[in-house]
Amino acid sequence: MTSAGRADSGSPRRRQAGSLLRGLVGPALAFVGILAVIAIVWETAKLIGGVPWREVAGVPIDPPWNPPLRIGLFNDVNLPHVWEIVGAFFQPPSRRSEFTLGALLIDAAIFTWRGAAIGFVIGAVVGLLLAIVFVHSRLLERALVPYVIASQTVPIIALAPMVVLWIGRDWPSVALISAYLTFFPVTIAGIRGLASPDPRALELMRSYAAGRWTILRKVRLPAALPYLFTALKISATASVVGAIVAEAPTGIPGGLGRAIITFNQQYASGPQKLWATVIACAAVGILFFLLVRAAELLTLRGRQQPAT
């Protein structure tokens, strides 16, 4: 930050609104830029080392372009053209389908995101509650944190089918598995954040004869917020991964996980459909991340910007 600081510089509120916009627009532009670079590298690779180009976006070219090198990886199955992937969104995935792939993927994304978001909320609440308990009880922290860590070493692929067996082939299973991936970063960051206040701040609260509950609300939780948001951003993307991983092996219908399985089976005939699905998955994760990031900027406005 250039002019962050001194009391005499501008209205704090106006600056906060500005930083909220800047906080989101900057990364968004960078993101689009990186996408463009990937597309260019992608097509350049095909131009130099792929298979002959007979048409571009459905329009025949004459004479066909013969790439100077032939590299096995760069063919139309492994790396379909960027425009074919984009085009896939606007075509039905199969002759029987009355909807475009894009419309179907939006439906699937909403289904998956709902499971992920519910799981995210549950996981965040559970994660924070655990952190609160651990910060107040050394004994429980010592006894239980190893289990919290061990819980994350269990492969989710192995857990998912069991959860589905118990709860059923629908979004509650997805939510539960998402919650399982969400709570961990929140607990770990929460322990650090809740313990982060200056000892003198706690002493100050003692001088007001403030109880634990008051100290938690007035000091520990506000101090933990930056830590928690860092964890929540990780959890937002992890919850989407969790949801997809929960759907895929168990074949829960309606979500992106199922779409991945389906288009994986059709990969040889239509690779662009799987690539489009992958993009949809990434988009859900990124949008969820941005949502949390926006909440972070709103919640933490007015705090000191970390020195840059």
Partner: peptide, 13 residues
């Protein structure tokens, strides 16, 4: 009583 430390210990938020 009121207490004042060497550091102001004000809350940033």
């Amino acid at each position: 009583y009121g207490m004042v430390f060497q550091a102001p210990v004000l809350f940033d938020w």
